[in-house]
């Protein structure tokens, strides 16, 4: 279930060893999961793994690598860039022999475009930043400090920013300001309304919804035309 893989060297820096959670039984359909980011990653963790369990029952392998700098990763998050995460996910797709990609929320920003697959409730960079900046201004105001979104955006762009406990580097921040999810060939959107029910990322306390996880997995199973296991 828990494995490691090595990211390739990049920009003159050595690669790193990263962990992944996988349901890997060497079956023909292998779905690379690009997880939600930051706070949403926590909120969607159980949901994501439940979808993977359902795919496993349907005879589909799934592979969920950590984004470098997140979870068990040893590399500093503040040094990560959008381009770096994109190339890491593309490398993971190759190293793990993925045949499809399931990108969740902001995961759609780093989904390898060479794989067919699905963007579930894709989140844009500007919306991701807007939510996190807003959380910071609200928390600051509670503490009697007045920060404006505009100032924080300028600061983030120039030198990076810590938002909700996540150190987002300047390059990552600037790239996110205009990052929109784009569907690659053979990729399609799955809107929350198709899955039904409230978006699990909205929950203040991480929750789970087996019904939603089951419906998302069923949509994927149907879409690959996987024969029943």
């Amino acid at each position: 279930m828990i494995f490691t893989w090595n990211t390739p060297a990049r920009d003159g820096k050595d690669g790193s060893e990263e962990m992944l959670l996988a349901f890997d039984r060497g079956r023909p359909v292998r779905v690379l999961v690009c997880p939600a980011w930051f706070d949403e990653a926590n909120k969607l963790r159980r949901f994501t793994v439940e979808v993977m369990r359902r795919l496993d029952s349907a005879g589909i392998d799934s592979l969920l690598p950590d984004l470098p700098g997140c979870n068990e990763s040893m590399v500093p998050l503040a040094e990560q860039t959008l381009e770096g995460w994109r190339s890491t996910m593309a490398a993971a797709a190759g190293a793990l022999r993925a045949t499809h990609v399931l990108a969740i929320r902001a995961g759609a920003l780093v989904a390898p475009e060479g794989l067919p697959g699905w963007h579930y409730a894709a989140q844009s960079g500007p919306k991701l930043l807007r939510g996190m900046i807003r959380a910071r201004t609200i928390a600051a105001r509670e503490a009697g400090i007045f920060e404006t979104s505009e100032d924080l955006m300028a600061q983030g762009r120039a030198a990076g920013l810590v938002l909700g406990g996540w150190s987002i580097g300047g390059a990552m921040f600037a790239a996110l300001e205009s990052a929109e999810p784009a569907l690659g060939p053979g990729q399609s959107d799955i809107a929350q309304s198709t899955v039904g029910g409230p978006g699990p990322w909205l929950r203040a306390e991480p929750g789970e919804d087996a019904g939603q996880a089951g419906r998302l997995a069923a949509l994927i199973d149907e879409s690959v035309g996987n024969p029943a296991p």
């Binding site: 919306k127 910071r136 609200i138 909700g164 306390e205």
Partner: peptide, 24 residues
């Protein structure tokens, strides 16, 4: 459970669902 992160999410979702823009 309604912390700053959850409130931010709530306001952002309000913007989407109601088609409004909420300023600082």
């Amino acid at each position: 459970e309604l912390d700053s992160m959850a409130v931010a999410g709530l306001l952002t979702e309000m913007e989407d669902r109601l088609g409004i823009v909420i300023e600082d």
